[in-house]
C-alpha cells in the first residue's frame, strides 16, 4: 500500500470517528455519553494526526497524539469529577437540566410532556332511574348540605 492510500484510510477513519463523536455529542443527553462522544472526536483527530505524521515522516504529530492522550486522561478525571458533583446537584445527568446560560426573557426548553396517568374514575354507563322523580324537600336539602 502506498503512503497516500494509507493516509487516505487513516483520514477516513479519523473523520468517521470525529463524525460519530459529533453526532453523539449533539444527539445524546446523558452527559457521560456526551463526554465519551467528545473523547471519540478527540481520538478522530488523533488518528488523522498520526496519519499526517506518518505521511510527512515527522514524529512531532505522534508525539502530540501521546500528549493528547495524556491530557485526555487528566481531562477525563476532572470531567468525571464534575459529573459526579453535577449529579449530586440534580439527581440526574440529563444535560437539559442545566440551561441557566440562556437569555433572560427566553422560556426554558422543555421536552414534550407525556401526560400523567389520571386517577379519575372512568365514566361508566348507567341506567336511567325508573318511576316518578321524588319531590325534593328544600328545607331538608338545605339541612343536609349543612350536615
Amino acid at each position: 500500500m502506498n503512503e497516500l492510500g494509507l493516509l487516505e484510510n487513516m483520514l477516513v477513519v479519523g473523520a468517521l470517528l470525529f463524525g460519530i463523536g459529533l453526532v453523539g455529542l449533539c444527539a445524546r443527553r446523558n452527559m457521560i455519553v456526551m463526554f465519551l462522544s467528545a473523547e471519540l472526536m478527540l481520538q478522530g483527530v488523533s488518528v488523522s494526526l498520526v496519519g499526517w505524521s506518518r505521511f510527512h515522516n515527522d514524529w512531532g504529530g505522534q508525539m502530540l497524539v501521546i500528549f493528547i492522550i495524556a491530557v485526555a486522561a487528566c481531562e477525563a478525571a476532572i470531567a468525571l469529577a464534575l459529573l459526579v458533583t453535577l449529579f449530586a446537584d440534580r439527581g440526574s445527568l440529563d444535560v437539559t437540566l442545566w440551561q441557566s446560560l440562556r437569555e433572560d426573557n427566553l422560556p426554558p426548553h422543555v421536552d414534550i410532556e407525556v401526560p400523567e396517568p389520571t386517577d379519575e374514575e372512568p365514566h361508566w354507563p348507567t341506567l336511567t332511574p325508573a318511576g316518578n322523580q321524588p319531590r325534593v324537600d328544600a328545607e331538608k336539602q338545605r339541612h343536609r348540605t349543612h350536615v
Binding site: V95, W98, Q99, R102, E103, N105, L106
Partner: peptide, 9 residues
Amino acid sequence: RPTQNGLLQ
C-alpha cells in the same frame, strides 16, 4: 435572541 437558549448541545 432565541439562539441563546442555554442548551449546550
